[in-house]
Structure formats: structure tokens, C-alpha cells
Amino acid sequence: MGDGDAGEAGSYEVQASARGWLTLQLAALGFVGLCGALKAGGAASPAPRGVEVMAGVLVVLALLLACLAVYLVGRTAWPHGGLPDDPARAARRLRTGLVLTFVTVLLTALAATSSWWPTPDAPDAPAASVEVTTSGGTLCGELTRGSGALALTVEGRTVDVAVTDVLSVAPVAGCGSS
């Protein structure tokens, strides 16, 4: 067995490894695409505009790097003309493609952090009050959690109103004392 045979065997090992890694790369590319679609189709974010722009740039950069990484690993897995490449060059191309794949995932995760931006709380703002009209009269208070009914806090006590009895619900600036 000559030196050419050993190099060719090493090249085939790198190709086999690249074919295995390509599956992971395609999953990473799908992850970047999904995050980009969720980012584009999501509701308004409380993050500042600059943070949103940076997140968008990071997602686009991650997508471009993911495409380059898939190209590098794919070219290693299936070399041009079907002939095996120099094993050292193929291994270097595979390594570069894998590093770019991990950078892609990191950039996507970093871009996703903008969606976790804290919403500004207004501690001095009064709770939203509603006026509920039923066949038995009108109640004014703050909506609270209830089970199976509309729950209102009226003058410090919780009142449950059956949903079937509700004629209308309207937001009001505040409840006047009667």
C-alpha cells in the first residue's frame, strides 16, 4: 500500500465524517430559519428599536454563515468531480464549516434574547377598571382571576358574576364611590 492509498483512505474518512455532520448542520439551518420566521411574525416587542435591529442583523448574519457552513461541509462530503480531496485540506474545510455552524447557533440564540426584553412596569398606574352590566344591575371594579365566572374586585371584595348574566363589559377610567 503506497502513500497515495493512505491519503485516499484518510480523505474517505473525512468525507464520511462530513456526511454525518451535514445532518446537524441542516438542523441548525432549520433552527435559524425558524427563529427568523418567529422573529418576523411575532407581536410587537418591548425591546428598544436598536436592540430589535441588532437582533435582525444577527439572524441574517447567522443565516448567511449557516449557508456558507453547509456549503463547506457539503463540498467536503461530496467533493467536486467525485474525486477525494487532499485529506488535510478536506479536514480543514470540515473544521471551518463546523466552527461556523456553532457560531450560527450562538448568533441565533443571542438574537433571540431580544424577545425576552423586560416590559416596563408602571407601578403608579391604577389597575384597569371595568363596568359590568348584568340583568340585575351594574358593577364597577377591577378584573381578577376567577373560576368559571367573571370575577371583579369591588370595594375590596371579590364578586363572581356568571358569564351568562353579563350583558356588557366596558373599560372605565375608574370607579366612582356610590
Rank of each mutant, 00 (worst) to 15 (best):
D160V: 00
V105M: 04
V14C: 02
A9G: 11
A122H: 08
T76D: 07
A162L: 13
P87D: 03
P120D: 15
G148F: 05
E13D: 09
L152A: 04
D5N: 12
C67P: 00
L63S: 14
L34T: 06
D124V: 09
D160N: 09
L24Y: 06
S178L: 13
G141H: 03
V105G: 01
V99E: 05
L98M: 15
T164W: 00
D85I: 02
S177A: 14
L34D: 07
D165F: 09
R145T: 11
A47C: 06
A62N: 08
P48S: 03
D5W: 10
W78L: 06
S168M: 03
V154W: 05
T113R: 11
F31R: 11
L61M: 11
A40G: 07
G174M: 08
D3R: 14
A125R: 15
E155V: 02
G148I: 12
P120I: 07
A109T: 08
V166F: 03
V163E: 10
S129V: 10
T138W: 02
T119E: 14
V103D: 12
T104P: 04
T153Q: 12
T113H: 11
D5I: 14
G2W: 07
S17Q: 05
P79I: 13
S129T: 04
L72Y: 02
A125W: 03
L61N: 07
L26T: 10
A44T: 12
V51H: 00
L58R: 14
G7K: 13
T101V: 10
V32C: 11
T164I: 03
L29H: 10
V60H: 02
S177D: 07
T119W: 07
V166D: 05
A27T: 08
Q25C: 07
T133A: 09
G36C: 01
G141N: 10
L68Q: 13
T119R: 12
G174T: 11
D124R: 12
E52M: 13
G56H: 03
S178C: 09
A128D: 12
Y71C: 06
R95D: 11
V105K: 04
T23Y: 05
A43P: 08
T138D: 06
S114K: 09
E13M: 11
E142Y: 00
A16F: 03
T96N: 06
A90M: 04
M54H: 10
G10A: 14
S115K: 02
A112P: 06
A149P: 01
L107H: 07
T144S: 09
S135L: 11
A27D: 10
D124N: 07
T164Q: 06
A170F: 09
A111G: 13
D121R: 15
A43L: 03
G174V: 04
T96M: 01
L22P: 08
R89S: 15
A37S: 09
D124T: 14
A109R: 08
E142K: 06
A170V: 14
F102K: 05
L110A: 14
G7I: 00
L107Q: 05
F31Y: 13
L98N: 10
D86E: 12
H80V: 14
G2F: 05
G42P: 08
L167E: 10
C140H: 00
E8C: 02
G141V: 04
A122M: 01
C67M: 10
G10P: 00
V161G: 02
A69T: 04
G174A: 08
G82W: 01
